[in-house]
Design a protein around this nucleic acid. Structure first.
Length: 570
RNA sequence: CGGGGCGUAGCGCAGUUUGGUUAGCGCGCUUGGUUCGGGACCAAGAGGUCGGUGGUUCGAAUCCACUCGCCCCGACCA
């Protein structure tokens, strides 16, 4: 491509709406443009990179025997009603009606459509296993789109679905995906972590996420630098670090006027939040449950739901006032009348704790949790925090932000049973198809690559997903056109993805654009060096440069490019 | 949904507090000339429903009401 003919609208100044590096740089470098909140246009450069990512995905999916197809984005409400997700998705689903007033949805994912296809055609164990996939636009009306293409309402996803006759078969399909995903992300040059995850709305028994650590990430990971353990904090389990020695040796009620929150109590009594116990009231509408957790910890809703059942919710301050006659800030476990008291495991054996006194303006200090409180059971109901002990090796855990780029699920029979996808097994019995589902956010790969590989001058793409592999920068197009033309066509013929900056602009201008866009290689053609019979090859990643003779330049560069492609693949 | 911020030329911004004649600046764009290894210089130009609607006023970018859109934080989320 000749740059003078290309549509590459780079911006000299930072767009004001962009704060996250990937957002700012993808806009500035002319990869994407915003159409509306959470909806983006992919410009030529951005789309080239997307296509490269998609081609890598396609090759690796095909390599495990997966078959690509294309499903509709416009789907009928009927299917979603069968699985129960017409309700479950709530406002996150884009809904519309057709002219006959039928309910439709723009699909946020495709388990239902795939299962609908499977139940018609996969009738015998002989038809199994199958892996089907597509790369297609998904629609999710996110409550808060953010950070450019990181969280959007319309995005391209590679989603695949496995259909097996046995649980061992599912394990195998899952493992195939796990390996393919590693190859895909390796080839994209990304550094990622695989973590245990929550399956959330998808359902199913087991899931893992592929995460890239980045400050702008919305997910939080507990990681152990000693043994490599890592898990999403949603599901991570770890032993809490011990609280400090309590100054309160004796149990007594103290006057704590206007002091309610953990921070206030901590400041007022001059005691660590780890020695304060929060008492939270939950209810399912009939039963009342007191949940106890350390002041420096947070309740993990997913874990709590597992312990208490899905219908239990936190009571509102008004409800607590109605039922117990006191503000939530002073609720405590001693003497309160509830149906059950459940405490987080971290409270086991705790002495000298501070709890609410069940009386306005008072707290009780010096509480021996196990002896002074009638706790019905201890459960792990908190979210892991930095400093907790690694469940594998006991080292202190770190908590870091990360971006999810892939997620693999063992769905089991959730959809096959609810939607009636059964096959006839060898012995003639009728069984539900055992399913898995596997997703990759294609645009997010671009975003995390930029998050990982950028500096103050711009992006520095892994060569495998760069919009072009090399940028020929002509210092003075009038004097070197013939040499450059030969290099350009030579590189194209050698299979090197090349753009030629033939614009009438100063050298500095071209260098700045090249830095910003982040082509991994630059070939500088200057009148001075051409006279010496050489051209200069520059590397974006480390800034190094080397002169090579014009005669062997094409051959040499093709060699370097192919090495770099290999290296990105590891 | 709660909190905060923003909307003026293609982009980035000033002007709004305290209403006043022709709405400015930088970049970009057009034409001509000079330059040519890190976002060149000179000259001449073009480009605006001041997000929208309604109101107050002799007069509104500026004041008032309503409204639309965008960003950030939180809640939420696969």
């Amino acid at each position: 491509m000749k740059w003078s003919k290309a549509f590459i609208p780079t911006l000299k100044e930072d767009p004001k709406e962009a704060e996250t590096p990937s957002h700012r740089l993808l806009l500035r470098a002319g990869f994407v443009r915003q159409h509306q909140s959470g909806v983006y246009i992919f410009l030529p450069l951005g789309w080239r990179s997307m296509l490269k990512v998609m081609q890598i995905i396609r090759e690796e999916m095909d390599a495990i025997g997966a078959q690509e197809m294309m499903l509709p984005a416009l789907t009928s409400a009927k299917l979603w009603e069968e699985s129960g997700r017409w309700e479950a998705f709530g406002d996150d689903m884009f809904r519309l009606k057709d002219r006959k007033d039928h309910d439709m949805a723009l699909a946020p994912t495709h388990e239902e459509v795939m299962t609908d296809l499977a139940r018609v055609y996969l009738r015998s164990y002989r038809d199994l296993p199958q892996i089907w996939y597509q790369m297609q636009t998904k629609f999710r009306d996110e409550p808060r789109p953010r950070a450019g293409i990181l969280r959007v309402r319309e995005f391209i996803m590679k989603d695949s679905y496995s259909f097996d006759a046995t649980w061992e078969g599912l394990d195998h399909s899952y493992e195939l995906h796990r390996k393919a995903y590693k190859k895909i992300f390796d080839r994209c040059g990304l550094k990622y972590t695989i973590v245990k995850a929550s399956s959330g709305l998808m359902g199913g028994s087991q899931s893992e996420e592929f995460m890239v650590v980045a400050p702008s990430g919305e997910d939080r990971l507990a990681i152990c630098e000693e043994c490599g353990y890592s898990a999403n904090v949603e599901v991570a389990q770890a032993e809490a670090s011990a609280p400090p020695e309590s100054p309160f040796k004796k149990r007594e009620k103290v006057y704590t006027p206007d002091v309610r929150s953990v921070e206030e109590v901590s400041a007022f009594l001059n005691v660590s939040p780890a020695l304060i116990v929060k008492s939270l009231l939950y209810t399912d509408g009939e039963k009342w449950i007191l949940v106890m957790i350390r002041g420096d910890h947070e309740v993990n809703d997913a874990k709590l739901a597992k312990a208490l059942g899905p219908d239990v919710r936190m009571a509102s301050p008004d409800e607590v006032m109605d039922r117990f006659g006191m503000p939530v800030g002073f609720v405590g476990p001693i003497g309160i009348e509830v149906d059950e008291i459940i405490a987080d495991k971290a409270l086991k054996g705790m002495k000298g704790a501070v709890v609410g006194a069940n009386e306005e303006e008072h707290h009780i200090v010096g509480v021996d949790i196990e002896n002074d409180v009638k706790i019905d059971r201890f459960e792990d109901i908190r979210t892991v925090v930095e400093g907790d002990r690694c469940p594998n090796c006991g080292a202190p855990l770190k908590v870091v932000n990360a971006i999810e780029i892939g997620h693999i699920f063992k769905l089991g029979t959730k959809y096959s049973e609810s939607m009636g996808a059964y096959f006839t097994d060898k012995d003639g019995s009728r069984k539900p198809i055992i399913m898995g589902s596997y997703g990759i956010g294609v645009g997010r790969i671009l975003a995390v690559a930029v998050e990982t590989y950028h500096d103050e001058n711009g992006i520095s793409w892994p060569i495998t997903i760069a919009p072009y592999e090399i940028d020929i920068i002509e210092i003075d197009p009038r004097k070197t056109a013939d040499v450059t033309e030969k290099l350009y066509s030579g590189l194209l013929n050698a299979g090197v993805d090349t753009i030629w900056d033939d614009r009438e602009a100063t050298a500095g201008f071209k260098f700045k654009d090249a830095d910003l866009i982040g082509y991994p290689l630059r070939l500088v053609v200057s009148p001075r060096k051409v006279k010496e019979g050489v051209v200069e090859l520059q590397f974006r990643r480390d800034g190094s440069r080397t002169d090579i003779p014009i005669d062997s330049a094409v051959e040499k560069i093709a060699e370097i490019v192919s090495e770099m492609r290999e290296k990105a693949s590891r």
